[in-house]
Amino acid sequence: MLQRPQESEYPEYYVPYVNSVPEGDLLTHLKENLTKITELFENISEEDADFRYASGKWSIREVLGHMTDTERIMSYRLLRIGRGDQTALAGFEENDYVAASQINRLPVKNILDDFVATRKATITLIENMPEGAWANVGNANNTEVTARAVAYIIAGHEIHHRKIINDRYLAAL
């Protein structure tokens, strides 16, 4: 079972993500949360997917697109760091990615299908990562991070945004 990372293994701004991952097997959580996200978004209408809980906030549809982009980027970081690649990995500006995606033109089902495919790829990457690779340290966005921490950040990021969708978006609809 993959060990929870120590706070020294990742930047401080990821603490809320890592702390939101419950104790237990990370792969089990990733698989269970895939089911939760699928059920959540299968019940969101096209009209509701355009809802923004406040001016200047992303739509529900944009949040799911952001979750997909971020998981894809973080999985790439996990792959590179897990393989021992010491090349510094660039950061990304999430608002620019959302704007450039033009995600609001896509049906929710298409966005959800993309998230599902991305999560399944993340799961197989984690399942097949060599045991010794989890302690590998890399540099992403000008900060040091271990492969183990990246895996937990991926899980925590999804949990964070699912909670926001439920608490801020769906509660206001």
Rank of each mutant, 00 (worst) to 15 (best):
N128P: 05
I126C: 09
A49P: 12
Y169W: 13
Y10G: 07
V116I: 15
I154P: 00
T118Y: 05
G91K: 10
T70F: 06
T35S: 11
I60Q: 09
I164A: 01
I81G: 06
T38V: 11
T87F: 00
H29T: 15
L170T: 09
V150E: 01
A90D: 15
Q6F: 10
S59M: 12
D167S: 13
T70M: 04
R52N: 09
D50F: 07
N104P: 05
G138Q: 06
D69K: 08
K31M: 11
Y14C: 06
V21H: 01
G156T: 07
A90P: 03
A140N: 05
K36D: 11
P130N: 07
T143M: 10
A117E: 11
Q86K: 15
S101Y: 01
T70P: 05
S75N: 14
S45A: 08
T122W: 04
R168Y: 08
I111H: 07
I103R: 10
K120N: 14
A117N: 14
R105C: 01
Y152G: 01
P16W: 01
G65T: 12
K163Y: 12
P130R: 09
L40W: 07
L170Q: 06
T87G: 04
S45D: 05
G156M: 04
M74F: 15
M129R: 05
V145R: 08
A140Y: 02
N139G: 04
V108Y: 01
L89M: 12
V116D: 06
S101D: 11
V18H: 01
Y97W: 15
T28D: 10
I81A: 02
R72Q: 12
A149E: 04
L26F: 02
E93A: 10
E158H: 08
G156F: 00
A54L: 08
T124C: 05
I81F: 00
Y13L: 08
A90M: 12
